[in-house]
Structure formats: structure tokens, C-alpha cells
Amino acid sequence: MRQFFPVDDLARDERFVQTNMAKRMADSRSAVGVKKSAKSRGASNRLTPDRHDASEAARSLMHGIMVGEIQALEGAGRTAHDFAAGDGSGDTIPFELKLDMARQAWDEARHVEISAKLSDWMGTELGQFSENTVLFEAACSNDPVLRLAGVNRALEGLAIDVFTQMKEFGQLAGDPFLEFCEDWMLADEVTHVKMGSDWLRKVTENDPDRRAKALEFQQVVDKLFSFGGARGDSDESPIGLARRFRELAGFTDDEVDTIAEMDHDALEERKAAVRLAQEAAGV
């Protein structure tokens, strides 16, 4: 079976249209206020049922979760297959790490099924929204330790934030299926992040340079996964940072604070870019 699969070759049927971060960020519109020092619309953008567009926004996020789960499945599966079993040095990974990745792939496959059924329940057709392939792109590194940092810590960390938000949405709306399913998937994601944190420490135990490089890579991916500040502590961000669950998954307070700062920077950078683009377009 082929190793190191490029993002362009992911198998999708004709219902799915793929996009990437470059195209996404080229969109010069913004859902948040972009005027300097202005907080958008004077109200929270958090994805809660009292938003006028709550259902549509929840459908879009749920679809994003579903395609994210497909890519997480593909990423975990690739990591289980792409590297030979060994002591963790070079391009090898411990056999037990392979087993964890196989278990994660099994979890993600279940999440895909759950997310597809939830999408159906919410009235979404598969492929109704574009699929951003940024998640899989983070899973394409040639260094397995970078994959742990990018996928298990950054991507699955984002999943913790998103599932917490959706679980609360279901709870507030009184949607029993959404709340229940998100809660169960959230428990898996905490486990996946914990696996990544543990393996990252173990595999780089005697290689501080490699660990530093991995954590640096994780910061780059974390900023990408902020989606221009769509996730963050600010009320302007639709998705909050799930600090408690991140703590359970092995993130330190300092690490979460760093992510929060990057989210804030990403939001301000995005607002500045949109402001410039709209001024240039004269709107």
C-alpha cells in the first residue's frame, strides 16, 4: 500500500468540493466587525442557540466536524502505516504507538458515522459545504513526531474546543442527540490528545531539539487552526477555548495561554486583512 499520501489525492465522491486555507483567507468578507477598536455588532459571536442564525451556523460547523473526522481518520491511519516499527528514532515509531494510531482511526471512523447521522438530523446534505483540507495537510509531515504535534495535539485540541461548543449548543437548545453524541466524541478526543502528549514526551525524551521542533510546529498548526480567530477566548470568536478539557488532555496552563494569545493575534490579523481588502475595494 502507498505511503505518504498527498492531500490532492484524498478519495472523495462528486458530492464533496475541497478548499484550503489560502482560498478561505482570500475571502475579503468578515462576520465580525473589522473597524479598529470596534467590537463586532456589540454582541457575542459565540455559537449559541440564541443567535438568529444558530441552526445554519451549527449545520455548517457540524459539516466541518464531519469532514474533519474523515481527515483525522485518514491522518491517524496514515501514521499507523507510513512509518516502520522501531525504537522511535529516525523514521520509526514504537509498535505501541502504531496500535494507538490504529485505535484512533477506529474512533474517528465511528465519529464520521455519528457526525454524518447528526448532519442528517440537522437537515444537512453530505457535501453541502466545502471541505477545508487543512486538517489533513497537518498530518502530512515526514517526521512522525511532527504528526503527533500537528494532529494529536493541535487538530485534536481543536476538536476538544469544537465538541465542547457543540455539546453546550445541544444542551442549551434541548437537542438530546446533539448533546449526547458530542459528549461521547469529546471523551474520545481528550484521549487522543493525551495519547499525543504522552507519545511526544516519550519519543523525544532524549532528543530536546526534536521536541522543541515539534512544539514549534504545533504552534504553527495551532495558529492555522484558529481559522483567523474563529476559535479563541474572545466573545468575537464563535468557538471558545475549552480550557478544562484541554487540561484533562495534558495541556499545561501556559500552553493554553499561548494558544489563546495566538488566537487573539490571528483574529486581529484577520480583521486587519479584511479591513484593508474592503478599503481597497471601496466598500
Partner: peptide
């Protein structure tokens, strides 16, 4: 129109 979308919106506002 996708009726299930409208039904979900309605349930969100009036109850499941």
C-alpha cells in the same frame, strides 16, 4: 427547500 432544515430550526426555537 430541505424540509429537515426547517424542522430542525423550528425544534431549536420551540422544543424537541
Amino acid at each position: 427547500p430541505i424540509q429537515q432544515q426547517y424542522r430542525y430550526d423550528f425544534r431549536n426555537r420551540f422544543g424537541f
